[in-house]
Every structure is written in C-alpha cells, then in structure tokens.
C-alpha cells in the first residue's frame, strides 16, 4: 500500500494522451482513497453510536444512516 501511495505521489502523472484503461488506475486509487477514508469513517461511525446512545437516553429518535431519499 505504501508503495502504491509513493508511486501515485511521485509517478509523474504527465499529460500522456493515452486510451484510459477502465480498471487499473481506478481500482488502485480507489483502494488508496478508501484506506485513507476508512479510519475517518470508523471514527465517525463510532461517534454516531455514542451520540445515538446518549440521544436514546434522552428519548430522541435514533439517526438512521441509511436514509432513503436524497435530501
């Protein structure tokens, strides 16, 4: 993973006009971004649980992360 990170940062992404491979770059960057975001998401989810617990203690309706409709 760190190799990928280094490569992405230092790989010299010049303006090469090439046919874009649909998979590789997207997959790799996705894994990298997701790895960075995963930690933050875990903290956010944990915090939601804590605040949900306290909210339920005070009788507030629990926040549903899977809301159905775009706001």
């Amino acid at each position: 993973m760190s190799g990928l990170f280094t490569q992405l940062l230092t790989g010299g992404f010049g303006a090469r006009l090439v046919y874009l491979d649909p998979g590789s770059g997207s997959y790799l960057i996705q894994i990298l971004i997701a790895a960075l975001l995963g930690g933050a998401f875990a903290i956010k989810a944990f915090w939601k649980q804590i605040s949900g617990f306290f909210a339920s203690l005070f009788g507030k309706k629990k926040d549903d992360n899977l809301d159905d409709q775009p706001k």
């Binding site: 490569q7 992405l8 790989g11 992404f13 010049g14 303006a15 090469r16 090439v18 046919y19 874009l20 491979d21 998979g23 590789s24 770059g25 997207s26 997959y27 790799l28 960057i29 996705q30 971004i33 960075l36």
Partner: peptide, 19 residues
C-alpha cells in the same frame, strides 16, 4: 481532489499497466 483529480492522474498513470 481524491475522486476527480487523483483519480484522473491514476487512470493516466496506469493506462498501460494493468493490475
């Protein structure tokens, strides 16, 4: 920055480099 800019750069970087 992540989903467009870095994503675009990664696509170009790995265009000829299948994983």
């Amino acid at each position: 920055a992540a989903h467009i800019h870095a994503h675009a750069a990664a696509q170009v970087r790995y265009a000829d480099d299948p994983v």
